[in-house]
Design a binder for these strands. Sequence first.
DNA 1: ATGAAAGCGCTAACAA
DNA 2: TTGTTAGCGCTTTCAT
Lengths: 342, 342
Amino acid sequence: MAEKVTIADVARAAGVSRQTVSNTLNTPEVVRAETRRRVLDVVEELGYRVNQAARQMRTGRSRLIAARIDPEQDGINGSVGDRFLHGLTETAAREGYRVLLYTADGDDAETAAFDDLLGAYEPDAFVLMATHHGDRRTSWLAERGVPFVTFGRAWSDPAAPHCWVDVDGAAGTEAATRHLLAQGHRRIGFLGWPEGSGVGDDRREGWRRALAEVGLGVTGLHRETEDDVAPGEHAARDLLDRDPGITALVCASDSLALGALHVARAPGPAWLAGGQSHRPVAVVGFDDTPVAKAIGLTSVRQPIAEVASSCLRLLATRLDGGAGAPPEYLLLPPSLVVRASG
Amino acid sequence: MAEKVTIADVARAAGVSRQTVSNTLNTPEVVRAETRRRVLDVVEELGYRVNQAARQMRTGRSRLIAARIDPEQDGINGSVGDRFLHGLTETAAREGYRVLLYTADGDDAETAAFDDLLGAYEPDAFVLMATHHGDRRTSWLAERGVPFVTFGRAWSDPAAPHCWVDVDGAAGTEAATRHLLAQGHRRIGFLGWPEGSGVGDDRREGWRRALAEVGLGVTGLHRETEDDVAPGEHAARDLLDRDPGITALVCASDSLALGALHVARAPGPAWLAGGQSHRPVAVVGFDDTPVAKAIGLTSVRQPIAEVASSCLRLLATRLDGGAGAPPEYLLLPPSLVVRASG
DNA sequence: ATGAAAGCGCTAACAA
DNA sequence: TTGTTAGCGCTTTCAT
């Protein structure tokens, strides 16, 4: 075990008091330049590092940010959460914070985890993902005055008391739809999730908007289903059977898009040809997951790394000084990654 | 902010000393049953939780386990690391630990991160992934007596002083090869990484062994290249061009396998058909990533969740009491997930 | 079986 | 500008 260097060791070696060492580190401007230099030299020489636990006891700040790591997903959609965590950890380190992980299944389990964590490790803040209508987690934290940001807007509250960062999903599906329109497609369907999910409704809206802009309606052109490959395939088949005129499909996720690809065939190289013959239907997914890249699926890409760094920056600002700052809301634009499928 | 409940509050409400509360929580057997009950009731009622920072100052134990989260990968191979982290976090919580994240690029950056972390947050242990020959991280930790486990065996040291958990990669490729042999394939190639990587050599060895068992040699049947899709495609094309008799390919990763699929075509449904005609070559990958599932690639699956829980259990045992226990080495068997590609 | 005292390493408040 | 004092919440002695 590495021998422990305390502030007292530094003070002794530098010939100053412990307080002066502390000041040098935390309020350098209050220490004479010469003294500061001497102290910093000793700090360097001895490899001193402030002990977080001790500092935390005095200041009440742990410099820990808690984030949930999702239970293993289908691996397609899960990748967004993982990329987000990567980004958070990197930005956090730069801002002098560390990310503490926890797991929870459902809102209530998650608020229980908040309670545990706050009682024991006292993270300075939480970062939440996948906000939804009537999110009990945000109200729990807000009621207790615990700082937090969310990746995902406050769906039920346009003037939320907390910061959020989100990606403009509607803009994404709108861009995808326009891209298809520009290619000459006129009957463009949509595969999404059942109404009521903020994210899903938002993505459907972008598609609808793009069609409306060129005077096209949406009746009979969309299907809603569970977010997985098999349901996606089923829904796509149903939609295409009912309306053989459809030549392109915008999907709310890569999972659904992958399912759709099983019944559709994009122009150019044949991607997923089942045993039977297929229609040349273009497909666009959402999230630009590794699977999309692997199979050549055109997909809407969310700037996850930026979302993560924005979340942390908003948090850090408020944590380090600007406690009373009004909440900020950030809506970042996605981009369309065009591949062979559409 | 939640009002803080301290051990003193509990002591007062239960009519005992703070010490008795502490004993009730840490050494229950030393407290009279009746007293214990009373204290626990109050703990429950007040929602008391021991403050980690304070406890850490006394005991020197943080109940924090540090693990690295990889910078964003190609998304194919990265998924193993993410699944591992999921598993760690879940098991850790069950054992009363939390996972603290850090990032680092390269061995030296990682040992620097160790130093930082140990000085500041004092994690009780580290969990390392992707060990390799001459791993500077393990020697750094070992020299300083910091507890750690690795996912990945100690390639350079059969009698390593630390615990490790690994998956028997050779057994995986051997099973894959046997599976292909059982299907009637006789000329089975291998796509792997340049010699010298423990993991890669191990996987190649399993393939070689399976062929040797049935009296087949390996000359001219393998190619080594960088672990990515394009190099995999290139190597596969080269291999198949040189030896048109090859009917199946075992690959050291799903990335390579995906590349191979671009030039091969599995029996059954056609998966990835380029513009040109293709040979019906079976392909098996390694890691069973989401991409493998999505495209119907047969792949060797590592029991990542078990690896993670084993790592943590070994650590927890040594941390909570059995400090002097001799190191344990665990080699877990992988399994073959058969899909359409082979 | 229970309680009192001490101190882990740090920094806010105050004194010099 | 620098040093002294006190105490954050807990657990390890040691005394009762």
